[in-house]
């Protein structure tokens, strides 16, 4: 316990000039958004770190934006920043849109559907600060990580895809399709500019390009609990897109 407090003090000291911009792209996440914001506030306040939450809503028909406004009233305009867009323009451009408005020198990217738990953010920050890494990636595949709510078929596909990716690309990071990561802001800006893929493959390409640019990458094991509320937005062509993207990266990098 004493040791834990000491670590917390050290991190606070190390990160005293840092600000973390947490990007939350949302599409129909009215049930998840208040919870995820509450959890982020809880863990970031506990760690006494400076942060802002940037909500990028793409005109969700379920009223996610109104919920975000309610949250803004409670937590303040400097903590909850709203950067909505008119219509659904996709995840990749949502990130870029968020980065443009971020005032922090570090950026955290995560899903708003509660499958990425905010308790891992301070852990990522801790590792980043101690080793001065350019990227810290959450990983489901390393020791201590894992998933919940996946059946055998999904686990098999996930493990198979991961094996193939590791074999073909040797990326030096164990989870390429996950999107729970901490970046230095300028690093993320450079990466989004040089990545051409969309969707799942975008996450994969970011790590591959990061290796090309000789950025340092750390990993924190995360537990991935499948979304409780709302629907998955990714269609059945997911696997096909993944294979196409993998082969593209295999042939070009």
């Amino acid at each position: 316990m004493v040791e834990r407090d000491q670590t917390k003090k050290d991190i606070k000291e190390l990160a005293r000039n840092d600000k973390y911009s947490i990007l939350l792209p949302t599409y129909n996440e009215i049930e998840n958004l208040p919870i995820i914001v509450w959890l982020i506030v809880k863990y970031m306040d506990e760690s006494e770190l400076d942060y802002e939450i940037i909500v990028i809503d793409d005109g969700s028909p379920d009223g996610t934006l109104d919920m975000a406004k309610q949250l803004q009233n409670v937590y303040g305009e400097n903590k909850i920043v709203l950067r909505p867009r008119e219509k659904k323009l996709g995840l990749g451009t949502a990130y870029m849109h968020g980065i443009k408005h971020a005032t922090g020198n570090f950026i955290v990217i995560m899903d708003a559907d509660l499958s990425h738990h905010p308790k891992f953010i301070p852990k990522m920050i801790e590792q980043q600060r101690y080793l001065d890494l350019d990227i810290v990636s959450g990983t489901r595949y390393a020791q201590g990580g894992g998933v919940y709510g996946w059946d055998f078929k999904r686990k098999l596909i996930s493990r198979g895809a991961n094996f193939l990716t590791q074999l073909l690309l040797r990326p030096g990071a164990s989870d390429l399709t996950g999107s729970f990561r901490l970046y230095k802001k300028d690093v993320l800006e450079k990466l989004t500019q040089s990545c051409v893929s969309k969707g799942y493959v975008f996450q994969m390409e970011m790590i591959v390009r990061a290796r090309q640019f000789k950025y340092t990458i750390g990993e924190v094991p995360i537990t991935f609990v499948d979304r409780v509320y709302g629907e998955s937005k990714l269609g059945g062509s997911e696997i096909f897109q993944f294979v196409k993207g993998l082969l593209y990266l295999f042939a070009t990098t």
């Binding site: 998933v147 919940y148 537990t223 609990v225």
Partner: peptide, 9 residues
């Protein structure tokens, strides 16, 4: 052996 995070859920 894919870890099932019962506790996390």
């Amino acid at each position: 052996t894919f870890n099932n995070c019962e506790q996390a859920a």
